[in-house]
Design a protein around this nucleic acid. Structure first.
Lengths: 216, 216
DNA sequence: TGAATTATTCAACAAATGATGAAATTATCG
DNA sequence: CGATAATTTCATCATTTGTTGAATAATTCA
């Protein structure tokens, strides 16, 4: 049952839920607000997807695989282009971040909302651990493996703490609170993803090098 | 009307609210849960503090000034101990972070809950901008000023973006989701604040240096 | 003590919430 | 077409929510 404009009501529900959950969190959103935003009856979400929790997870899952795919391709590409020593820290971090920037910069607002949702989940004591792990850990371990090769002196403890800081920096950038705009008196704009990622790559790479020591 | 054990019911309400808001967010907590946790009637929060929103802000405000004071003292101290060139990036970052570590490591769980609440607020698109700015911007600008002196080649844009990454890394550490434990197969423990901050200082300092360039 | 102030509890309200069967509508396809 | 299935709407339920006015208890202090 496909609508004429190509967007089914089920997708409209997921889009509306994505935006609202990202902005207000799980408990800050009611099924009625989602339905209203989607222009749909309240009962329809239940018919197509299930209860509220299942709706939340459906939204989270929807783009997760695609995102992993983008990142995996970027990592594979930079590994193929590198010599026998493998890619540099900068190249690995870039492969980790650029797909996100590109997703956020498509005209589609959906990716912006989705990544803000990931930020919410990543920071949530309740959802954070299980949901993030289930969908993203596998690929992250591939990135860590590449970093371990680029930083042969690093211990696992150092690598994973550094990844944690990277994850936090990224998350706050996703969250798009607009706080940095105000603090910097508009020297930085949180909507300027290009600037956010351009600065982030050397920051994070420098951080990894500083903690884990140069190779040799 | 002070209780015999020294903890008034008003304080018990604030403590319970602090813990629950930090864990479940504003909308994930009901006044009844707070009251139950505090061992108090539902109506009492309203009598002592006001409505739900005012309760949330009261919790947020309670420790904000004290936290600013700790950080300000640390910065002043490291500036006094430094030469005419001022403190190094590492010293400034350390002054920014150590008071948080110390607060989290007091036996009192309250500071842990409070900093998790700050993490929630900092990442929240709704609360993030206004509430954080109102209470923390002034002191943060003092820190930025010190960093500007330590990194004379840096532009404001670079400095504030780097601060943003620092803030994000810090926030995720506060949030205590336990995710890093699982990801690293217990090489890192999110409850180990000492390790979290020990690694974070060189990471962030290295990041600043890498983005803003060494001086000279 | 006893009156007055403060603190706490009780009871109840209207509004909103997630959920779900039953009814109505629309699509599918032999 | 006509019947079977998929989709969408409608009406309604029991709970839960934030809030408040009145009643009760505890404290203060003259």
């Amino acid at each position: 049952m496909q609508a004429k404009n190509g967007i089914s009501k089920k997708e409209r529900i997921l889009d509306a839920a994505e935006q609202l959950f990202a902005r207000h969190g799980y408990d800050g959103v009611t099924l009625r607000k989602i339905a209203t935003e989607a222009g749909v009856d309240v009962a329809l979400a239940n018919y197509h997807i299930g209860n509220k929790r299942e709706l939340f997870e459906a939204v989270f899952v929807r783009r997760a695989e695609l995102l992993n795919q983008y990142r995996a391709e970027a990592l594979t590409l930079c590994e193929e282009n590198a010599g026998a020593d493998g890619p540099t820290v900068e190249q690995i971090i870039e492969a980790f971040l650029r797909p996100l920037e590109m997703a956020q910069e498509t005209g589609d607002d959906g990716w912006q909302h989705y990544l803000a949702l990931v930020a919410y989940v990543n920071n949530s004591p309740v959802w954070g651990k299980e949901l993030m792990s289930r969908h993203f850990d596998k690929l992250i371990k591939r990135f860590i493996k590449a970093l371990r090769k680029a930083l042969p002196n690093a211990t696992d403890k150092q690598l994973f703490w550094c990844y944690n800081y990277l994850s936090g920096a990224l998350t706050l950038t996703f969250a798009q609170t607009g706080r940095i705009d105000k603090l910097s008196r508009n020297a930085c704009k949180s909507s300027d993803f290009q600037a956010a990622y351009n600065h982030m790559i050397p920051f994070v790479a420098g951080g990894f090098r500083s903690v884990c020591g140069e190779q040799g």
